[in-house]
Amino acid sequence: MLAVNFLLLAAVLFSVGVYGVIARRNAVMVLMSIELILNAVSLNLVAFSLMTGAVDGQVFALYVIAIAAAEVGVGLAMVLMIYRNRKTIALDDLSEMKG
């Protein structure tokens, strides 16, 4: 099996995730696109682990999974709070911080 198989698949997932972050207006959808990006990175790490024969890549992939869980928890709590205060989670309505 070629190494580029995994790496190109991860590149496609990453690009799709970046498109989603740019294109989506709903905050929950943006968080889902970020999940795509994080998974692409972990896939790369596991592929590199297989390539080098060391398990460090898998350790990093587990760290990425843990960080993603924390990120989703805090992110969705923030989305809930914004929804409760503003009755919307459309990201372009939240422009108070714009200069």
């Binding site: 799709v16 972050v21 740019i22 294109a23 989506r24 207006r25 709903n26």
Partner: peptide
């Protein structure tokens, strides 16, 4: 209205 007004910008970037 799930997409931004400038959503098409994401395609060339991606």
């Amino acid at each position: 209205d799930l997409n931004n007004k400038g959503w098409a910008l994401g395609i060339p970037v991606g």
